[in-house]
Computed example of a mutant assay.
Amino acid sequence: MTGGRGAGTIARMEAVAGDYEFAPLRIPPGTSRSAAATMLSLQSETGGWELIRLQLHADGTRKVVMRRRARLSYLPKPHI
């Protein structure tokens, strides 16, 4: 594992230009495509998040960036 973070962790939350907050996520290798899709759809339904970017790396790691309007900050943070 790189960066010293555990599998499926959130790097940090940050507000950008006051309109959106972003959540960079890491989905560990070995997670099936359908399981990853289910995790991300649950985050969007329960926390108001939308998928901005998904990168699939050669080792199977998926790096995801999700965003939501900053006014929805009272909703739960994504956790994978």
Score class of each variant (00 low, 15 high):
Ala11Met: 09
Leu72Glu: 07
Met1Trp: 06
Arg68Met: 07
Leu54Ala: 11
Thr9Cys: 05
Ile80Met: 07
Arg62His: 02
Gln43Glu: 11
Gly4Ser: 07
Leu72Ala: 05
Arg26Phe: 01
Ala23Gln: 01
Val64Thr: 01
Asp59Tyr: 02
Pro24Ile: 03
Ala37Lys: 05
Ile10Cys: 03
Gly4Trp: 02
Thr9Phe: 00
Ser34Pro: 00
Arg69Lys: 04
Arg62Trp: 04
Thr46Met: 04
Leu51Glu: 05
Arg69Trp: 09
Phe22Gly: 08
Thr61Tyr: 11
Ser73Pro: 01
Thr61Ser: 10
Gly6Gln: 15
Glu45Gly: 13
Gly18Asn: 06
Lys63Arg: 09
Val16Lys: 14
Gly48Ile: 11
Ala17Leu: 15
Thr38Ile: 05
Glu45Ala: 13
Gln55Asn: 11
Tyr74Phe: 11
Gly60Ile: 12
Arg71Lys: 08
Leu56Asp: 07
Thr38Ser: 11
Ile10Ser: 04
Lys63Ser: 14
Ser44Cys: 08
Arg5Met: 01
Thr31Gln: 03
Ile80Asn: 02
Met13Gln: 00
Gln43Val: 07
Ala70Ile: 08
Leu51Pro: 09
Thr46Ser: 15
Tyr74Gln: 02
Glu14Ala: 09
Val16His: 10
Thr9Tyr: 00
Ile27Phe: 02
Met66Ser: 06
Lys77Val: 14
Ser41Gln: 15
Arg67Asn: 02
Met39Lys: 10
Ala36Ile: 03
Gly6Val: 14
Glu45Leu: 15
Ile10Arg: 12
His57Val: 10
Ala7Asp: 11
Ile10Gln: 09
Gly18Glu: 04
Lys77Tyr: 01
Ile27Arg: 00
Asp59Pro: 09
Arg26Leu: 01
Pro29Phe: 05
Leu54Thr: 12
Pro76Arg: 11
Arg67His: 04
Met39Leu: 14
Gly60Met: 02
Arg68Pro: 11
Pro78Asp: 04
Ala35Trp: 01
Ser44Ile: 06
Leu25Asn: 02
Gly47Asn: 06
Asp59Leu: 03
Glu45Ile: 10
Tyr20Phe: 15
Arg12Gln: 13
Glu14Pro: 00
Arg67Met: 07
Leu40Cys: 03
Thr2Ser: 12
Pro78Ile: 12
Ser41Lys: 14
Gly48Leu: 11
Ala17Met: 12
Ser34Cys: 00
Ala17Arg: 14
Ser34Asn: 10
Arg67Thr: 09
Gly6Glu: 15
Ala23Ile: 06
Glu45Thr: 13
Ile10Asn: 12
Arg33Cys: 07
Ala11Asn: 11
Glu21Ala: 02
Leu42Asp: 15
Pro78Thr: 09
Pro24Met: 02
Thr38Asp: 11
Lys63Ala: 11
Glu14Met: 08
Leu54Asn: 08
Thr61Leu: 12
Met13Thr: 15
Met1Ile: 14
Thr31Cys: 08
Arg26Pro: 00
Met39Cys: 07
Pro28Ile: 04
Arg62Met: 01
Thr38His: 12
